[in-house]
């Protein structure tokens, strides 16, 4: 297989980047505006420990998920950059 050109590498990188943004962005939307606001009533019928589930998402769960999402994104992007040889050399 021929070595991809610089512009092909950039294109692959940008396509992968957008794919991850879409996936993680969808989860971001679902846990916050979804579970925390739009579907909070049905979720509140489920009780886990002392929490109604919808209330828990809105005041705790969404925040924990946000942290996980950022670290997943940071990780997959770093791996992608290594794979494509787009890593920065620290100044």
């Amino acid at each position: 297989m021929a070595k991809p050109s610089e512009s092909e590498v950039r294109e692959i990188y940008w396509r992968e980047n957008r794919r991850w943004m879409l996936i993680l962005g969808a989860i971001w939307f679902v846990v916050s505006l979804g579970c925390g606001v739009l579907w909070v009533e049905p979720l509140n019928t489920i009780q886990i420990g002392g929490f109604k589930l919808g209330f828990w998402f809105a005041q705790q769960g969404a925040i924990y998920t946000f942290i996980i999402l950022i670290f997943i994104y940071a990780r997959v992007m770093a791996r992608l950059e290594r794979r494509l040889g787009l890593e920065e050399r620290e100044a």
Binding site: S32, V37, F55, A58, Q59, A62, I63, F66, L69, I70
Partner: peptide
């Protein structure tokens, strides 16, 4: 009064996901 205040909790943290990705 409780649940209504979730807008601050989610709003002021969820922005960091946008910031980190976009």
């Amino acid at each position: 009064n409780g649940y209504g205040g979730s807008v601050f909790l989610m709003g002021w943290t969820g922005g960091y996901v946008i910031l980190a990705m976009l």
